[in-house]
Amino acid sequence: MSDEPVLRFDRVGLSYGPGADILADASLVLRPGSMTFLTGPSGAGKSTLLKLAFLALRPTAGRISLFGLDTGRLKPDALASLRRRIGVVFQEFRLLDHLSAYENVALPLRVMGRPEASYRKDVTELLTWVGLGDRLDARPETLSGGEKQRVAIARAVVVKPDLIIADEPTGNVDEEMGERLFRLFRELNKRLNTTVLIATHDMALVRRANADVLRLADGMVVRAQAPPALQQDTPA
């Protein structure tokens, strides 16, 4: 893979209609294979920043590039192709309630047109890894908050995306499961060079993980802690 940033924000601004900007002049760069935490107080705009990154929102100012492409200039079908390279864990999970856990995880593969037989083993193994091997046929409404979260995480990683964007992925599970889920991201990051961006309040997790940490404050992104080798990446 080239050294092209996987995700790049250039002086991005965002406001929901009239009123104060949620983001103002937010800039950041994610290198391929990096692992980054995004922290900040509740309401700071973490979810908003992630929504911009996974193309659910358009910035009101600035430029967002994904895999070296300026997203503001792309046609809908090209944006769809970019989205397939991104696995998203939504803060509110967004599982489809008429599908089983298994079918929810398999959804991105179905969208890609993959036949069921080609992924059955992978999906089953993944659900087993997150501790839901015996709940394959369960509907989301019968799952606990933490179980839903694990299904959402499995769905985000099932296509082995180039970029994983997770919004509070450990917010609803106990410390032990949180550690296990984080290891899943870590494995993908180490083995497949997957770039990972995680928004979280879980400072214990942030401290334990040896990763880049960005902080959102006053609509700007501040580098809070970074491994020495990456320090010069902070955009001007």
Binding site: L55, D77, L107, P108
Partner: peptide, 16 residues
Amino acid sequence: RDIVELLHLTGAKDSF
């Protein structure tokens, strides 16, 4: 609309 939105964010093309 929730399904439309999720499929859209998962990378499904409009025609799909």
